[in-house]
């Protein structure tokens, strides 16, 4: 099987930012906690490869740690969505048409009525802002997404004869869901996972831009954009780097998702939109 070109480009971009985030755990070119007003707004080149911001902090270092924040938030949020959403969706499909299915799906619809931002607002209002809030808000929003995908794909599998055969063998619905359904929808979940990952990056950027995400002094791409906004019209370059990081990461993840979809099963094009 040929690896689709999107997959290669996507994996390369994603891998690049993932590597930057990992490296930032033990090495950054400069410290980002110290403020150096004298060295503020240094142009790219020299000691600061990408220059410094309005407080004199090294942009490259900020971006590396920002990658860590963004990726961690989005990844954990996808984890929450899969861990809670997939079992719910499988359970709903296994008990199709019963009150349990109805309650689960109506619950799903209810969460859909709360955009991530609104959940973040609610949590922040009672618990104060933090990166954890962003994780929770995006993660909660991911739950119904994965539940729906899992339920939809599982429903079409439940009509297959091999499921009937398993039931004739006396297997329980939970066992069938784990043994027969889950492995057959895993491809779909991986593809949806990359899509939610990329949406998570964007959502995290939006939340930290309005101050509902990671708090100072932790650098994050969204807040770097917010901080550069007042200087944007005199110094637009400052906003280009974080924006570029967001765009390339999201682009990479989306390309990877498309590529995976083509690689794993061309029929998935229909199931995921």
């Amino acid at each position: 099987m040929r690896t689709p070109i999107q997959l290669k480009i996507g994996a390369l971009l994603t891998g690049l930012f993932l590597a930057a985030a990992l490296v930032s755990l033990f090495y950054t070119p400069h410290s980002v906690t110290g403020v150096n007003i004298a060295g503020k707004l240094a142009p790219p080149g020299g000691a600061h490869l990408l220059g410094t911001d309005h407080l004199g902090r090294d942009l490259l270092s900020m971006l590396m740690i920002g990658a860590r924040t963004s990726i961690a938030v989005a990844l954990v949020a996808v984890g929450i969505g899969i861990a809670l959403g997939v079992p719910l969706g499988l359970a709903a499909a296994a008990h199709r048409g019963t009150w349990a299915d109805e309650v689960l799906m109506r619950g799903n619809d209810l969460i859909f009525a709360f955009p991530s931002l609104v959940i973040a607002i609610l949590i922040t209002a009672v618990a104060g802002p933090s990166a954890l809030n962003a994780i929770l808000a995006i993660g909660i929003f991911n739950i119904p997404v994965f539940a729906r995908v899992a339920r939809g794909a599982a429903l079409s599998l439940w009509t297959r004869d091999f499921i009937l055969a398993a039931r004739v063998a006396g297997k329980s619905r939970a066992r069938i869901s784990a043994e027969h359904i889950l492995p057959n929808i895993a491809n779909l979940l991986v593809v949806q996972g990359t899509i939610q990952f990329s949406l998570g990056i964007l959502a995290e950027a939006g939340l930290s831009y309005v101050g509902l995400g990671a708090q100072p002094p932790t650098p994050s791409w969204g807040r770097m954009l917010a901080e550069s906004q007042t200087l944007f019209y005199s110094n637009p370059g400052l906003a280009m780097f974080p924006a570029g990081c967001i765009i390339l990461t999201v682009l990479g993840l989306n390309l990877m998702g498309d590529g995976l979809r083509d690689l794993l099963d061309p029929r998935l094009r229909r199931a995921v939109s």
Binding site: D161, F162, A165, A166
Partner: peptide, 26 residues
Amino acid sequence: VVFQDPYSSFNPRHRVSRILREPFHL
């Protein structure tokens, strides 16, 4: 039981040996 559709009667991810083991589940 034997069903009508030979294409949907088996989990595509299981080998024949595993398929034939299923009746012994209980």
